[in-house]
């Protein structure tokens, strides 16, 4: 068991490339490339500030949010896709950090609500018109 964990750790360490350096100024300044900045903005609006009450990192003045903005912009400037950045942050903080809930077996009920509500409602309505 211990050996396997050690191997796994080695594998993970080897597989994870060193992240590109983060420019702290990017927490306060937009990217020069408007397309990249738009991508970053879209993602920052969907990431949740950790030290605030239900605020996105794009909306928050907290220092923590600023650090996360710097990370998002640096990664996107380095050519990473927004989804890769989101996945990386989820790997660190869990799904909580993304305002978009994951699609998993335990969130099936959440994503099925619209269809389910229409289906059940539709059946009731059908009885009404029969």
């Amino acid at each position: 068991m211990a050996v396997r964990v050690a191997l796994l750790a080695l594998l993970l360490a080897a597989a994870a490339p060193a992240p590109p350096p983060v420019d702290p100024a990017l927490g306060r300044t937009p990217l020069a490339d408007p397309a990249a900045e738009a991508q970053a903005m879209r993602l920052m609006h969907e990431l949740r500030c950790l030290t605030c009450q239900n605020q996105s990192i794009a909306d928050s003045n907290a220092e923590q949010a600023e650090a996360m903005r710097a990370l998002v912009r640096s990664r996107i400037a380095a050519g990473e896709s927004p989804e890769a950045v989101r996945a990386d942050l989820i790997a660190r903080y869990g799904d909580w950090v993304s305002f978009r809930p994951p699609a998993r077996p335990d969130t099936l009920a959440l994503w099925a609500v619209p269809a389910l509500a229409l289906l059940v409602g539709g059946l009731v309505v059908r009885r009404l018109f029969r």
Partner: peptide, 10 residues
């Protein structure tokens, strides 16, 4: 015990 956020994207 899993923490998720359901926000504007949903």
């Amino acid at each position: 015990g899993r923490q998720i956020s359901v926000g504007p994207p949903y």
